[in-house]
Nucleic acid binder design. Structure first.
Length: 515
DNA sequence: CTGGGGATGGGGCCC
DNA sequence: AGGGCCCCATCCCCA
């Protein structure tokens, strides 16, 4: 018995020694790794500092060059057209998604990489859930300064360097003062976006040219649940936290848009420094169809950018609105673009269709501004995150949104909720305003805009927005051709292909022989 | 060789 | 889920 006890004691002591040794090993490993890690971090910091310095030098250099160039232009007394200006800057921002048509420019700055790769452009004021963003908008400069340069500052916080950049930068776009021969201090417009406030106010501060966008607390939320899970919760009648618009609530929103309607103001707008856009939304009247919880403490830049993107209908020109993945450049002396009060039926439709499509949806559906599935879906949908780890993901997504709008718009015009369908379509797509009778349909439809493709082929990389499309696609792999022509031996995998093929036969029979 | 036009494959999206 | 339409890309034939 005593032996047994001694044996146990020895075993225990041995175990303890072994455990201690193991712990010591682990600690040593951790320490080593930590040291290496620290070293790497330090090196990265140094690199960052170096790069930042380079960037500053580049900024200065470019600002100087621009100033000289502008001075030269002014000496030549050639009043540059807005298109020229844009073209000039287009060249400065290679590889960016310009959708410029005429004076309309819708660009995606290289800076978007910074937004995505680094931290969100969120300046947390630390005031509870409120997050305040100030985007210092500089025409062309926003792009010119290159990627990674974030142009926003907290309100009240003036970055001296930035201010300097602004003031040394040429004012070739924002100002119309062509008489000046020396670079003037840039006219500046700032867009301040204050998330977390219970109401949304877009207001201008004419005297300071500060365009303040007080943004309604965003309610898009981030739903990280799996797609089937989300589908599962979908269903008619409405379920909260879905990204769609409830048609019923459109009318409950009081929106006033005071803007320069007079297109003649456009040219003078350069000197008219007042920001003409005012949107007042009575918080009491704001009743979004569906609102989900928003965790602003996470600094969801997607929400922010979506809001700015949506709020990008900010009237007035002159500047570049730097967004997450989208930069809206609005030409200084061009007719007001992305202009809330511009009538949809105006001649503007011949230009920048994609851009206008979105704008149009904003015009007709102003409460879109707080529900941008473009971002929320990207944030939420597991598939979409699988789709593209690359930096171009957002770009692709956005392009899809833009490209899809043409078709969708035409369809929406034909069969939108407001077109008086017999079936009540109270769920609106927030992109094209098209109405649907059921949430699932909105969800499915909105994939057209968001690019979300939840159904993936197991045998290839193809993805589809609808299950039926996947099913049909898989016939490509199986070789199945269930649709056979009754008049010949041809078989097709698409029913529509068969139908189309059969027209060949009917056309042949209908063909009138030459006389 | 080349360009035009028809036919087909296949995806997108709506009903 | 299936049918249908539209669109785009590609192939093939022919002048």
């Amino acid at each position: 018995m005593a032996n047994c006890m001694v044996f146990h004691t020895q075993i225990a002591s041995i175990m303890e020694v072994l455990a201690n040794a193991a712990v010591a090993d682990i600690c040593k490993l951790v320490d080593d790794d930590y040291a290496v890690f620290r070293l790497e971090i330090t090196q990265s910091h140094k690199e960052n500092r170096g790069l930042r310095r380079k960037l500053q030098l580049l900024e200065l250099k470019m600002a100087r060059e621009r100033a000289e160039k502008t001075a030269r232009e002014r000496v030549l007394a050639s009043r540059p057209s807005s298109v020229k200006i844009l073209d000039r800057y287009r060249g400065m921002s290679r590889g960016e998604g310009h959708l410029t048509r005429g004076h309309r420019s819708f660009v995606k700055p290289a800076a978007h990489n910074a937004c995505r790769d680094d931290q969100p452009i969120t300046v947390d004021e630390g005031s509870g859930t409120s997050t305040q963003h100030v985007i210092v908008i500089e025409s062309a400069d926003a792009e010119a300064v290159g990627p990674g340069v974030k142009l926003e500052r907290s309100e009240g916080e003036e970055d001296p360097r930035h201010s300097r950049d602004i003031q040394t930068g040429a004012s070739h776009v924002a100002t119309e003062d062509l008489t000046a021969t020396a670079p003037q201090p840039r006219t500046r417009r700032r867009i301040t976006e204050v998330s977390g406030t219970p109401n949304a106010v877009l207001k201008s501060e004419p005297d300071t040219e500060t365009l303040t966008v007080t943004q309604r607390l965003l309610h898009t939320g981030s739903d990280h649940r799996s797609y089937p899970e989300r589908l599962g919760r979908l269903g008619c009648p409405p379920v909260p936290s879905s990204d769609y618009l409830l048609y019923d609530n459109l009318s409950s929103r009081a929106v006033q848009v005071n803007s320069h309607r007079d297109s003649g103001d456009a040219l003078e707008a350069g000197s008219d420094l007042s920001c003409s856009y005012t949107t007042e939304m009575d918080p009491g009247n704001i009743s979004l169809g569906l609102e989900t919880q928003t965790d602003l403490s996470r600094g969801d830049w997607n929400q922010y950018s979506s809001s700015v993107y949506s709020e990008g209908c900010l009237d007035k020109k002159g500047e570049v609105i730097v967004l997450d993945e989208v930069t809206v450049k609005v030409e200084g002396d061009a007719p007001l673009t992305w202009n809330v009060d511009e009538t949809p039926s105006g001649e503007g439709h011949s230009q920048g269709r994609d851009f206008l499509d979105y704008r149009e949806s904003l015009e007709t559906n102003l409460n879109v501004t707080t529900h941008s599935p473009l971002h929320t879906v990207r944030d939420r949908d597991p598939v979409s995150t699988l789709m593209g780890p690359s930096n171009s993901r957002g770009r692709v997504l956005f392009d899809q949104v833009l490209n899809s709008n043409d078709r969708t718009r035409a369809q929406a015009q034909g069969g939108g909720a407001t077109s008086g369908n017999s079936k009540e379509k109270r769920f609106l797509c927030m992109f094209c305003n098209k109405g649907f009778s059921c949430i699932q349909k909105v969800e499915i439809h909105q994939r057209v805009h968001t690019g979300v493709k939840p159904f993936s082929c197991t045998q290839c990389h193809m993805r589809f927005t609808q299950a039926g499309d996947l099913k049909r696609h898989q016939r490509v792999h199986t070789g199945e051709k269930p649709f056979s022509c009754t008049q010949c031996q041809m078989r097709f995998s698409h029913s529509s292909s068969l139908k189309r093929h059969q027209r060949v036969h009917t056309r042949k029979t209908l063909k009138v022989p030459p006389v």
